[in-house]
């Protein structure tokens, strides 16, 4: 098994109430496998929130970084993961101005 660190930001962090969590995946797993695993653990809607069903890619307003790099600089969702990799999820911020 390989251990992958997941860093949630913005409201995802608020929902998870954790700065970082670790998931375990089989060797040769991809970023897509990690998202599938998180969908099982977090919410059935997580995958749909991140991936556009039509294009099969990360939604244009959602940022997923692997080791600080955008997925399209790598092999998108098919990028193979290594033990110790860090995936960061930046969802779009929702709502209007809170600081009023």
């Amino acid at each position: 098994m390989i251990r992958i660190k997941v860093r949630p930001f913005f409201q995802l962090k608020e929902i998870l109430k954790e700065k970082e969590l670790t998931i375990e995946l089989t060797p040769d797993s991809t970023v897509l496998d990690a998202i599938e695993e998180l969908t099982k653990r977090l919410s059935p809607s997580f995958k749909d929130a991140v991936i556009d069903k039509n294009s099969g890619k990360v939604r244009s307003y959602y940022r997923v970084l692997l080791g600080g790099r955008d997925l399209h600089q790598l092999d998108d969702l098919n990028t193979k993961l290594c033990d110790g990799d860090i995936i960061s999820f930046f969802p779009p911020v929702a709502g209007g101005n809170r600081a009023t």
Binding site: F9, V93, G95, R98
Partner: peptide
């Protein structure tokens, strides 16, 4: 919303 809620400091973590 990111600029509205947090201003440009909302970019710091990214």
């Amino acid at each position: 919303p990111r600029l509205s809620v947090y201003g440009t400091p909302g970019l710091t973590t990214l």
